[in-house]
Design a protein around this nucleic acid. Sequence first.
DNA 1: ACCTGAACACCGTTCAAGT
DNA 2: ACCTGAACACCGTTCAAGT
Lengths: 179, 179
Amino acid sequence: MRLTPAAVLDAAITLLDEAGLDAFSTRKLATRLDVRVGALYWHYPSRQALLDAVAEQIVAEASATPIPDGDWPQQAAAMIHALRNAMLAHTDGARIIVEMDAPGPNALAYIERLRGLLAGAGMDRATAEDAADVLTSYLNGYTIEEQAHKADQQRADADRGFAFGLNVVFAGLRTITES
Amino acid sequence: MRLTPAAVLDAAITLLDEAGLDAFSTRKLATRLDVRVGALYWHYPSRQALLDAVAEQIVAEASATPIPDGDWPQQAAAMIHALRNAMLAHTDGARIIVEMDAPGPNALAYIERLRGLLAGAGMDRATAEDAADVLTSYLNGYTIEEQAHKADQQRADADRGFAFGLNVVFAGLRTITES
DNA sequence: ACCTGAACACCGTTCAAGT
DNA sequence: ACCTGAACACCGTTCAAGT
């Protein structure tokens, strides 16, 4: 079978899910695809470009989750939870997102949508950008930590702790929009 | 000169600051110390153990910053800013902290102190732990992102954005203690 | 006790040459 | 256009042997 960028990406995600980011290598990936390492470089310019494509895929999964009707904190929370779930669906998903080199169209659309939601709540453009950063920074920081020490705690505990913190952040953001 | 754990650690921090985490290798470190690679393994069991020691050192720098008198949000903010400054003082400092394998005594003392501060604000033990997680998750997420895309924005912009978010988190935490 | 020498089992990336 | 073969310049870690 002929190699395609999509086939390489699919195999990369499978390998990543099984082995984790640190054990992910272009050589292991080539072996799985029954191809020599160099062949990968025809389809992707580097290991990091491949990982960036994986990050885009993860954001795509998050963006596929519909955002229900509701007020802006509910909708923003739904967006954050959707991205969190997509990250958790993949080994080291949070690190793959954060260590992304250049954000692709999916990542840009996601962040723009989140900013738009916050601007709709009455924040000016600059404040909406800062507020979106608070939400994604908290999401990334919490989830990287969680995935780094996976065996330590149950998923339910982590979900509760994350939801607590997200509520704290929204409570803080409300004090801004209500002033 | 005889090699000591402290000398290895010092050289590791210097190399890390100059080259960054991804370019940090035990072999480059050995070359700098004018020693064969294997010699390092007499003093540290692995590359990661060495990085953990660096993380401990960074936390030590943070803990050396005195916490001024004030109410609990001021004191907690001082602790967070101290750790942030220590991270920013080293290339990829945030990643080194977050990718730490096992927290050492400095890291444990730092987190315990932060939790104590929050418990002193009237939170029960479990809530204080969750609240400390919100603060450190936000700090880690924001600072990893900032250090990953260093050239993109000025330090002053990043500081302002970080302070904005930290205020948001504290505003959220206050709504809890005041209920 | 501490370090060297040398190996083992890997890496990412490049590129002429083949098809 | 796409892939192989083969190399280049690296990695982390181990361990017998030296001092």
